[in-house]
Computed example of a mutant assay.
Amino acid sequence: MTTVQRTAAPRRRPPRASKWLSRGAIQVFLAVIGLVWLTPAAGLFLSSLRTDTANANSGWWQALAAPGQLSFDNYTTLLKDSGIVQAFWNTVLISVPTTVAVVAIAALAGYAFAWLDFPGRDWIFLLVVAMLVVPVQIGLLPVAKMFGALGLFGSIPGVVLFHTAYGLPFAIFLLRNFFAEIPKEMLEAARMDGGGEWRIFSQLVLPLGRPAIASLAIFQFLWVWNDMLVALLFADNDSQPLTVALQSQMRQFGSNIGVLAPGAFLSLIVPLIVFFVFQRQFVQGIMAGSVK
């Protein structure tokens, strides 16, 4: 009796040319999407470098054919405006402390909700999650009255405190879920080695949670930097950020592109720089937890 040995047919690999073509098509598609996304920013920048007459007579793309009409005179004029300069620094003084406070408090709370046992932990976390559905508009009037009684209304600390309070529910929810995915065995091993909770949090949990923390910091910074509603209500003329100052300029100068375009681009360039500098951490944070 003879046996016939069958050999498995080798798998056919896709041709290398088609693989390169598909990858090239994806890269071209992504490049087109990126170009479309950056076109408004480029148009705003070119408009800010043109005179009012040039902007009124032709579109911003005409500057590509006649680059000699571009100059930084509008920025020079804008930066001589003490109100705009003060508004820019007010925006920094509002955005940076808010981002630091939200990330620091949310990291501590997220670790506590994920790995510490205390009475009412689950119910308190459910309360935090329930606060995510509360619109910010509901709290404007009550908080404004409270800030008026405390002497915080119309000040930078008041705006920072409001943004911090309303940014914490989402931040705690995000970091708690991320910290909960850390293997329990790692924390138990650290405790067996004599590590306290603070040492475990600072030397183990925080480094592992860096992608999520970086993504949260980017989101929080962009939300606060671009906010106008809260600042319009809680900030006065001395503490107003750049968004409110530009809105005031728009009411005063109407459609004066020579004033509004440089200010708008100045407000836009900082979030763009933050995003491009930390884009790797942002992508890692988005992908965190998707692959175990």
Rank of each mutant, 00 (worst) to 15 (best):
A190C: 05
E185D: 14
P207D: 08
S267P: 04
E181F: 13
A235S: 11
D227V: 05
P183T: 07
A180R: 14
W223D: 13
P183N: 07
D193M: 07
A264M: 02
F253L: 12
Q220G: 09
L204N: 10
L246W: 00
F221E: 02
N177C: 15
F265A: 00
N237L: 15
S248T: 15
S267L: 10
Q247A: 15
A245M: 11
I218F: 06
F265N: 03
N237T: 13
S248R: 15
A189D: 04
L268R: 08
R191N: 00
L204W: 03
L272F: 12
P211H: 04
I273C: 11
A212Y: 08
L204Q: 04
F178S: 15
Q247G: 14
M192F: 09
A212L: 11
S248P: 13
F253P: 09
S255A: 15
F173C: 08
F265V: 01
V224Y: 01
V270D: 01
A264K: 04
A235M: 01
D193Q: 08
A264R: 01
K184H: 11
V244C: 09
L233V: 06
M250K: 08
F201T: 01
A212P: 12
L268W: 07
L216G: 04
A245G: 08
L206F: 01
F275M: 08
L208M: 06
I218W: 06
M228Q: 10
V244R: 06
A231G: 04
A214V: 10
G209L: 03
G254W: 03
F179R: 07
F253Y: 11
I218A: 09
